[in-house]
Amino acid sequence: MTRGYARLKALVVDWVLVSLFLLMVEFLVISFSGRRGPTGLLVSPEETLDLLHYAWIGIAALVLTLGWQLARGERGMSPGWSAVFGEEGDEAIPWTHTLRGWFTALLIELTFLTGWLITEVQLVTFLTQFNKATDIVRGLVNPSGEVLHQGLVLLVQTIFLAFMATAFAIPVAFALSFFAARNLTRGSGLARLMYTVVRALMNITRSVEPLVWALIFISWVGIGPFAGVLALWVHSVAALVKLYSEQIESIDHGPVEAITATGASTLQVLRYGVVPQVIPPFLSFTIYRWDINVRMSTIIGFVGGGGIGYILKPRVDLGQWGEVGTLVILIAITVWAMDIISAKIRERIV
């Protein structure tokens, strides 16, 4: 049963890899064969993607994968097979002598070439067209004093915005992290369910960018710093739960056993066996998070979430590069200072 499942896993991994390989080969062949589109021009990468034969490639890849897995005696193991079942035999064969080695090397090459085309890398433009950006750079190095005062005021708001988001995140993340720690949630079916639910919710929350959260909260509580606080709060909770719970998972289990053995209740075991071990790293993570939040809160204002980004965005749009320069320098100094302070404090704690 488990053996069959492992084989299926190996098959799926191989099938995905071989499919990617074939797709990229076809993509590159079409791109370089100079095929012309309806306008008579060479087709763009997007149009090339449209031309790929996904279904046929998938089927071809499946056939190749099955062939490889059946013939692995002579051709060596496939990548998925070795990932699932581990290496066979003790001899270290150099990668140039195995099909898998060549396959992997080629796959990496293909990925790089395909990436070059898809992201439309233009080295020549990059190296020769600098003069178009001189205005901006000149503005950045010649900051204007006009927005200095307003910038400083909003900078204070930015730092407090980050602080409040962190402060609100601590209790929520602290409570949730115990449910998101594997070693504390093995006990009952309910605990395991809580683990899965909390983990899933936090992963979803974390994968949504703070800017998107800001948009949601701006419609909720209106434009202003509070929307920014809420946006960073949500994101911080998710990030801190992950860091906190991983810390809980790495504690020394000894004191937990000792306290459990005295007949203590679950809460007492957490208070005596777990909490003392995780407080210093929790503090360290929290300060680090505040540091990150300061950086994020500078751009949360771009969408109306308060802070210094609020006056930065219109000046970027209007091309007032001198004023933009002032604000960027203010942000840089703050981020740099926060970075040093938070590193120093964390050094002392751990």
Binding site: G254, P255, E257, A258, I259, A261, T262, G263, A264, S265, Q268, Y272, G273, P276, Q277, I279, P280
Partner: peptide
């Protein structure tokens, strides 16, 4: 009803000695 003594002592390292002793009465 059952006290336990461990090879690795398993004290709460960051608590005081007295608090560690007191934790025997948690139950």
């Amino acid at each position: 009803q059952i006290g336990m003594i461990f090879q690795q002592f398993n004290l709460v390292k960051r608590h005081t000695v007295l608090t560690n002793v007191l934790s025997g009465s948690l139950g």
